[in-house]
């Protein structure tokens, strides 16, 4: 009885100590603010900020290496939320308010080169080589990544037409959050 209890206790202590030592050497520096910042970003990994994805952008933000206005798809609302979280004042003087828009492909100009489809991070562009491409409106989040890669300027960002399904009450002035 004593032997059983004692040996189990000894094993638990020894393994626990080993794990404790290992966790010292293998500790991963994880900044909790990074996770919170990543949650504020859109999370579509479009890469327009110049970082690989939203997690990397959040890391740069947490290290104060990037301005809070880095996220084009996020717009003013995300910049303000990020500024509030980081406790800095956002310089929004050069910010242009974009209306919600989606990519549109002018089919008479489309060559079927597939460049835009490869660029799209949400797979919103369908098409095959040498066939016209088109944009799936529900999937497109208007990041505008496809616009510069099009050689024939067939892609334009068009504002989403206001219909009963897409109209919302205007937000009250000032900060959204």
């Amino acid at each position: 009885m004593i032997l059983a209890v004692g040996s189990l206790a000894a094993m638990g202590t020894a393994l626990g100590a080993l794990l404790g030592i290992a966790s010292r050497y293998l500790a991963v520096e994880e900044n909790p603010i990074e996770l919170e910042l990543a949650a504020l970003l859109p999370g579509s990994q479009c890469g327009q900020c110049g970082y690989v994805g939203c997690a990397q952008a959040a890391k740069a933000l947490a290290a104060h290496e990037a301005p809070v206005t880095l996220c084009p798809p996020g717009g003013k609302a995300v910049a303000e939320a990020l500024a509030k979280k980081l406790g800095v004042t956002a310089d929004l003087s050069e910010h242009e308010e974009h209306v919600p828009s989606i990519a549109y492909i002018d089919e008479s100009l489309c060559l079927g080169c597939l460049r835009c489809a490869q660029e799209c991070s949400v797979d919103a562009i369908v098409g095959a080589a040498k066939q016209m491409h088109t944009v799936i409106a529900e999937a497109c989040h208007g990041c505008g990544k496809c616009e510069p890669v099009c050689n024939t300027m067939a892609i334009t960002l068009k504002p989403i037409p206001k219909t009963v399904a897409t109209w919302y009450w205007p937000k009250p002035g000032g900060s959204v959050h």
Partner: peptide, 21 residues
Amino acid sequence: TVTFILVIAAAVQFTEMVIRK
């Protein structure tokens, strides 16, 4: 069973740390 699970759990925790790193 108890002791074996103890060892396995410790090994898994260690593996988790290594993979995370």
